[in-house]
């Protein structure tokens, strides 16, 4: 473990704003993509007229 305390970790040697913005935007992008896919799948299943019955 490199850091001495939690506040030191959050401060990132004074670069906290830039470091955490980067990581949070990446996390938001991934979360958004997964949620959007979830909704797209629900919509596609609802409009699929049961075509999957032939495959399963």
């Amino acid at each position: 473990m490199y850091w001495g305390s939690v506040s030191e970790f959050l401060a990132m040697g004074g670069y906290g704003l830039y470091v955490w913005t980067s990581f949070i935007i990446t996390a938001l992008g991934i979360t958004w993509e997964v949620l959007a896919l979830w909704r797209r799948r629900a919509a596609a299943l609802a409009d699929s007229h049961g075509i999957l019955r032939s495959t399963e």
């Binding site: 990132m12 040697g13 830039y18 470091v19």
Partner: peptide, 19 residues
């Protein structure tokens, strides 16, 4: 974020490279 030490020239801003 937790184990790697800070960078000598770019300090902790270098951690952005991990994403």
């Amino acid at each position: 974020l937790l184990v790697a030490p800070t960078d000598a020239t770019q300090h902790d801003s270098y951690r952005i490279i991990f994403v």
